[in-house]
Write a protein that binds this DNA or RNA. Sequence first.
DNA 1: TTGTTATTTTGATGTTTGTCGAAATATCGA
DNA 2: TCGATATTTCGACAAACATCAAAATAACAA
Lengths: 100, 100
Amino acid sequence: MNEVFKALSDPTRRRILELLKEGNRSAGQIAEAFPIGKPAVSHHLALLKAADLVQSEREGQSIIYSLNTTVFQELLSWVYKLRGTEAEPGNAFGGTHETR
Amino acid sequence: MNEVFKALSDPTRRRILELLKEGNRSAGQIAEAFPIGKPAVSHHLALLKAADLVQSEREGQSIIYSLNTTVFQELLSWVYKLRGTEAEPGNAFGGTHETR
DNA sequence: TTGTTATTTTGATGTTTGTCGAAATATCGA
DNA sequence: TCGATATTTCGACAAACATCAAAATAACAA
């Protein structure tokens, strides 16, 4: 979980996630969207992958990155615990464990 | 918002938040709960305060810290946007804007 | 195999960060 | 005011981090 928060602490990495939200992208396409070099982006992607926030799959010469939304649930749980009100919905219909 | 993520990227600061969830504490009480010195804890508290994650109020010689849960809502919104399913509940009864 | 494209790894550099001890600031009680 | 307690600020330092240019790796095409 520490890796997740560390990964989210950098603005570039958060914008990479927001970009991947729009659709899967190759490492090169992601790099083009930022004013930093490809090695730097590659490094950010490695950190995001280590945190399990993204997945990667080779497709020919390219490597396609995509969001891995499963980890976001853990993140949400952590925030909910702090906030006190234990809503923590898994979907739009209500909580997974109501607290009353 | 960047300050929030930066603040959450350190394990000690996250544990401070979890400690304050149990109840308000003075800076000294917080420092006692961690194996690092008081100046370090004071620094962490300053970052948490700059991120608006905690509030502080002087009470005699002590300064009492408490959670400021309002910022967590922004944090939740950010995660929800990424996750795709726009549930984003403000309470236990459902979303603030259903997406269908 | 040779050359081209896509991506990562390496080595180096400047910046930021977490921590410390010591000093400074603030409040209270005698 | 003086002394004790509580907290923060200062100055310094080592570790971690983001970035770069250059080299290395991997897949494809000719």
